[in-house]
């Protein structure tokens, strides 16, 4: 499903590479944590998988597609098979929960009729039934992140990327978000999550890949934060 093959990424003007000869393979339906200190290169992986950046060396293969050399006009279509949530939610403040999710469908060409059918369903799934018409500022942080998850998942992507999704949330809310991600994972969606929240990693007992200084220093099937 996801394969990084001897990937090296050095940002322009950076003294040392963010990722240094990293190879990793993630199967369909996996739930994987990338952990490590700030600046270790975790977020670079998310950016590579979204094809926001390209590696200097090595190959990135997602959904059977070689994306490191993908032509730029093909990237939008590729991204439709990937959902993504971030620490800062990235919701549109002038749109309601419903509109935020529907927007993601409309801009990729889905009709309003499709949105009317699918959006309430996914909002129900993330536990926001009845709050469809609230604006982001009328929702708690956890609820906002649920909207973001709904938006990422509404298109039923094969892969869900999560870049520190609990970074702005208190521990209890974080656990609720993790339950949600777990439920999404059980539908067969591959989940890749970058975090340094040790509580969560220890509770979930899923595959843990630890990165330090741009290199993989640990890869455990049912790991803890350590």
């Amino acid at each position: 499903m996801i394969r990084l093959d001897h990937v090296t990424k050095t940002y322009p003007k950076a003294a040392r590479p963010s990722l240094d000869d990293v190879s990793v393979s993630i199967e369909k339906g996996d739930f994987v944590f990338f952990i490590g200190p700030s600046g270790s290169g975790k977020s670079t992986i998310i950016k590579l998988l979204l094809r926001e950046i390209s590696p200097n060396r090595g190959k990135v293969n997602v959904n059977g597609k070689e994306i490191s050399s993908m032509r730029s006009w093909k990237i939008p279509h590729f991204r439709r098979s990937i959902g993504c949530v971030f620490q800062d939610f990235r919701l549109l403040p002038n749109k309601t929960a419903y509109e935020n999710v529907a927007f993601a469908l409309e801009v990729i060409g889905k009709s309003k009729a499709v949105a009317r059918r699918v959006v309430p369903e996914v909002l129900e799934l993330v536990g926001l039934g009845g709050k469809e018409h609230r604006y982001p500022h009328e929702l708690s942080g956890g609820e906002q992140q649920r909207v973001a998850v709904a938006r990422a998942f509404v298109n039923r992507p094969l892969i869900l990327l999560a870049d520190e999704p609990t970074g702005n949330l208190d521990p209890d809310t974080s656990i609720e978000i993790m339950r949600l991600l777990d439920r999404i994972n059980r539908t067969g969606t591959t989940v890749v999550m970058v975090t340094h929240d040790s509580n969560i990693v220890n509770q979930m007992r899923r595959r843990v890949i630890e990165i330090e200084g741009g290199r993989i220093v640990r890869d455990q099937a049912r790991g803890v934060y350590g």
């Binding site: 991204r79 549109l92 801009v107 938006r151």
Partner: peptide
């Protein structure tokens, strides 16, 4: 910029953006 960022994230085509 927020709308554009979301559109890019969910894979709206360039011409649409």
């Amino acid at each position: 910029r927020r709308e554009v960022a979301v559109m890019k994230l969910v894979g709206a085509s360039n011409w649409f953006i």
